[in-house]
Design a protein around this nucleic acid. Sequence first.
DNA 1: TTGAAAGCGCTAACAG
DNA 2: CTGTTAGCGCTTTCAA
Lengths: 344, 344
Amino acid sequence: MNLKELSQKLGLSQTTVSRALNGYPEVNEATRARVLDAARRYHYRPNTRAKSLATGRAMAIGHIIPISTRHEIVNPVFSDFIAGAGEVYARSGYDMLLSVVSDAAEERAYRELRAKGSVDGVIVHGPKLADPRIPLLAGLDLPHVVHGRATGTDAPYSWVDVNNRRAFQRATELLLDLGHRRIAFLNGLETMDFAVRRRHGYEAALAARGLAADPALMRSEEMTEAYGYRSARAMLAQAGPRPTAFLASSLITAIGLRRAIEEAGLRMGRDVSVVTHDDELSYLANGEEVPIFTATRSSVREAGRRAAAALIGLIEAPDSGPAQDLMEAQLVIGGSTGPAPTED
Amino acid sequence: MNLKELSQKLGLSQTTVSRALNGYPEVNEATRARVLDAARRYHYRPNTRAKSLATGRAMAIGHIIPISTRHEIVNPVFSDFIAGAGEVYARSGYDMLLSVVSDAAEERAYRELRAKGSVDGVIVHGPKLADPRIPLLAGLDLPHVVHGRATGTDAPYSWVDVNNRRAFQRATELLLDLGHRRIAFLNGLETMDFAVRRRHGYEAALAARGLAADPALMRSEEMTEAYGYRSARAMLAQAGPRPTAFLASSLITAIGLRRAIEEAGLRMGRDVSVVTHDDELSYLANGEEVPIFTATRSSVREAGRRAAAALIGLIEAPDSGPAQDLMEAQLVIGGSTGPAPTED
DNA sequence: TTGAAAGCGCTAACAG
DNA sequence: CTGTTAGCGCTTTCAA
């Protein structure tokens, strides 16, 4: 059932039917009611492609998911972000277009999206320091919102981010308060903006207690399970005193890390404490709330919602300035922590 | 730059330029070369919406992601599947359209997708037993491929699935071979088709040794971390002999499970063994290969590739019969396993 | 081997 | 308040 057929059934012109359907004021309310009723009865849905060809608006938003060319890893927070954004799109009548693109091909992907006219705007995932995609998009005049930030970008841009620095600072403080002094930090790749912010938080917490960060206890890699395993294993075996606590930048990395700790015959929360990027820990509540982590699954979802809403705002009111939204890290209860073991 | 402008620059008609670009044979090769060259120089990209309006093909494929109305969980394997499918779409010139839809609204979502003409086909995620979406799609005459299967569906349909039954049978056998007899099984929700198949595998392995499955050791819920924690905690505390091994249907569930084991003061691989849905375990290789699991991240990605390719086949050659592709579970090395502790 | 013209399904001036 | 007409950018007869 298309507009032409529908208007014929009603004995009206396509124009009138279109206007009635799209809420234009100049339509007789009785006519509008008839039209609306018929549309419902015949399950009429306007053809999106025709509509957007006529209006020049795609009613779609693109998400370009960078895949690391090295490990081909898809960041798992991505599904939650998408879920949040999807809610908003569904409410607002937008479609969501996904492109999975190796980071080498990203620039071309953006240009194509633009030229093919398939989207009205774009969400940028996984920003790096001074990410070249942001000026590129500005140049292409494609509305965009960044999930995260890109230190070193000159012109202002819209973003939604979680306070990574603060979260890791608090996590480090938690371990310091428990008496830990040798706190290993398994960070993500420090070409990523979020990873640098996290390191700053870690270092700030140490500095506030007059402690220097020890390079032997700091790593930065893509957040795989193998990375967690190898790093923890090496650090637990290295000459000099062992770390008594680990701070891991990702749940996946922490899985490997825990395995290494198990293998070393150490007990979690007694010989070694682990704090990680985690979620759903509220079931562990034992009365004491400890500030832990940044991007719990539910907060990532919320970030998705906000980013989508901000982008739609940008698209529909292009003159509004850039939206900048720093979400505070969420408080979560838990972690396999305990006091630092006493030295003997 | 659109077709009209491009053809004017070339002093040719739109028709000829279009034909040259789309590989029609009746074009003079010299002309074609000129056209191709100009298209490249001017970065010409045909407008997708105009093209699909004219051809009647959307050149897009829909993925409808069901969100459980209860927990709003997005299955994390989803990102990997999408990544695999995305590769294929990129190669074949299709766009990927995502809708995140609460399972209550799924039927409407499919109908709309169909009526709005935004996709040429659909991938069905997370099939349930006798999933109503499959006959619905058949009725709508929308090409579709299911990721997984739906026991109880009458008419044949296309699917790509991993051999869940076999994988869980082998995992159970592994634990049985190590001497375990009280093997707890934390399954996913058994309204999902894959979960039922996994249970069958578990039961079959026990039955083959003349063991009866013990209902007190079996659970079925949505695969959250809290579920793993609560279940393991309860089972380790229950009257009667403890389980000496756990089989968990998801990596996330296993995280909670491990935490409960830690809390109980038990040692992994000594007091208790855990086998789970895992990946990247090859870094643990110690010489012995043990058959473990189904949907490692890389095999899910491969499933995404195959499903996408199958769907494109269905779209482009509608008369080919349904594609059915049972992937064997992948062999992975690892697991926190050890011999069953002797009773005292 | 090329081009003119119609049309995909819709919206948006412009008239009335 | 309603209708006529043109056109969004492309493909596809049909004719030359």
